Simulated assay, not measured.
Amino acid sequence: MELLRLKTVPCTFLRRLNRFVALVEVDGEERRALVTNTGRLEEFMIPGRRAFCTPRSGGKTDFVLVAFEDLNGRGAVIDTRTQAKAFERALELGLIPWLRNCRIKRKEITVGKSRLDYLFECPWGEVYAEMKSAVLRGGDNGEYAMYPDCPSVRGRKHIMELIGLSKAGKNAMIFFIGAMPGVEKFRPYRRGDPEIAKLLAEAEKAGVEIHALSLSLLADGRVVLERPSLYIELEEDF
Rank of each mutant, 00 (worst) to 15 (best):
4 L>D: 06
7 K>T: 13
11 C>F: 03
12 T>G: 04
12 T>L: 14
15 R>G: 05
16 R>W: 07
17 L>W: 11
19 R>W: 12
20 F>E: 13
22 A>T: 05
23 L>G: 06
23 L>D: 07
23 L>E: 15
24 V>M: 08
28 G>C: 08
29 E>T: 14
31 R>N: 11
33 A>R: 01
33 A>H: 03
35 V>P: 02
36 T>Q: 06
37 N>C: 13
38 T>S: 14
39 G>V: 11
39 G>F: 12
41 L>C: 01
42 E>W: 12
49 R>E: 07
50 R>K: 14
51 A>C: 14
52 F>S: 00
55 P>W: 13
57 S>T: 15
59 G>M: 13
59 G>Y: 12
63 F>V: 00
66 V>C: 03
67 A>G: 01
70 D>T: 02
72 N>P: 03
73 G>E: 02
74 R>T: 03
75 G>K: 00
75 G>M: 04
76 A>C: 06
78 I>A: 00
78 I>H: 00
80 T>M: 06
85 K>N: 13
86 A>F: 11
90 A>S: 13
91 L>I: 07
92 E>F: 13
92 E>L: 14
95 L>I: 09
96 I>K: 02
99 L>V: 01
102 C>E: 04
103 R>L: 15
104 I>P: 04
104 I>C: 03
107 K>V: 12
107 K>T: 12
107 K>M: 13
108 E>T: 10
111 V>F: 08
115 R>S: 06
115 R>Y: 09
118 Y>L: 03
119 L>C: 03
128 Y>V: 08
130 E>V: 14
133 S>D: 05
133 S>G: 05
135 V>C: 00
136 L>P: 02
136 L>M: 15
139 G>V: 11
140 D>P: 09
143 E>N: 09
143 E>I: 13
146 M>W: 00
147 Y>R: 08
150 C>W: 08
151 P>A: 07
152 S>H: 03
152 S>L: 07
153 V>A: 06
161 E>F: 02
161 E>K: 07
163 I>V: 05
164 G>H: 08
169 G>T: 08
171 N>V: 09
179 A>Q: 05
185 K>R: 14
185 K>H: 14
186 F>S: 05
186 F>H: 10
187 R>V: 01
188 P>S: 09
190 R>H: 10
193 D>L: 01
195 E>A: 10
196 I>A: 05
196 I>M: 05
199 L>R: 02
200 L>K: 07
202 E>W: 10
204 E>T: 06
204 E>L: 12
204 E>S: 12
206 A>R: 10
207 G>C: 03
209 E>T: 08
209 E>A: 11
210 I>Y: 03
210 I>D: 01
211 H>P: 00
211 H>K: 11
211 H>N: 11
212 A>T: 15
213 L>I: 14
218 L>D: 07
220 D>E: 11
221 G>P: 05
222 R>V: 12
223 V>I: 15
227 R>S: 14
229 S>V: 13
229 S>C: 14
234 L>H: 08
235 E>F: 15
237 D>Q: 12
238 F>E: 11
